[in-house]
């Protein structure tokens, strides 16, 4: 009797513990791709790949860039954290489902990087700093695609 009670209680705990993860959609991990913005020319792009994910947009998934227009100075600490929404005009694969139009809202948290203090003899400087990203992809209906393309 005690053993049956234990098994029932264990089963209930197992069900209760796993139900929230079943109910909530697991996040898709972006395993490769990039989002890039050129400071001088309007060359932008976002490409995301992962399990059941293939998303391409001709936009930069971020807001205003630092050190564009206004120059930065040696020794400045720069925060490249940014967020933005990009739209795929071509069919995108999100969560294993092909959709005619999709949006991705991405939030980048980038570790602050410091420019070198001594620049004599240098023509260019490249900084590398880690980031984490969280976001959300939205599948849009055909009606939204037609409206969007009409407005575009």
């Amino acid at each position: 009797m005690l053993r049956k009670t234990f098994l029932v209680a264990f089963g209930l705990i197992l069900v209760c513990a796993t139900t929230p993860s079943l109910a909530a959609a697991d996040p898709i991990v972006v395993t490769s791709g990039n989002t890039v913005a050129d400071g001088d020319e309007p060359a932008f792009g976002t490409h995301l790949e992962g399990k059941g994910l293939n998303f391409t947009a001709r936009e930069f998934a971020g807001g205003d860039l630092p050190c564009v227009g206004g120059l930065c100075l040696p020794g400045d600490s720069i925060d490249f954290s940014t967020e933005g929404t990009v739209t795929s005009f071509d069919p995108a694969l999100v969560g294993g489902v092909t959709t005619p139009m999709a949006e991705a809202r991405l939030v980048f948290s980038v570790a602050k990087a410091q420019l070198p203090t001594e620049l004599s003899g240098l023509f260019s400087v490249t900084l590398l700093t880690p980031f984490t990203m969280r976001g959300e992809s939205r599948h849009l209906t055909w009606m939204a695609r037609r409206c969007f393309l009409a407005l575009w």
Binding site: A25, D26, P27, I28, V29, V30, T31, N34, L48, G50, L53, C67, L71, C72, I78, F80, V94, G95, T99, A104, L106, F108, V110, A113, L115, L119, L122, F123, S124, V125, T126, L127, L128, T129, P130, F131, T132, M133, R134, G135, E136, S137, R138, H139, L140, T141, M143, A144, C147
Partner: peptide, 21 residues
């Protein structure tokens, strides 16, 4: 008009290149 949505996560390296003047 959103049909449904999925959360996304990822990590990597930010590469920034500067011209020195």
């Amino acid at each position: 008009a959103t049909l449904f949505s999925r959360p996304l996560v990822g990590r990597g390296v930010t590469r920034a290149s500067f011209d020195v003047s």
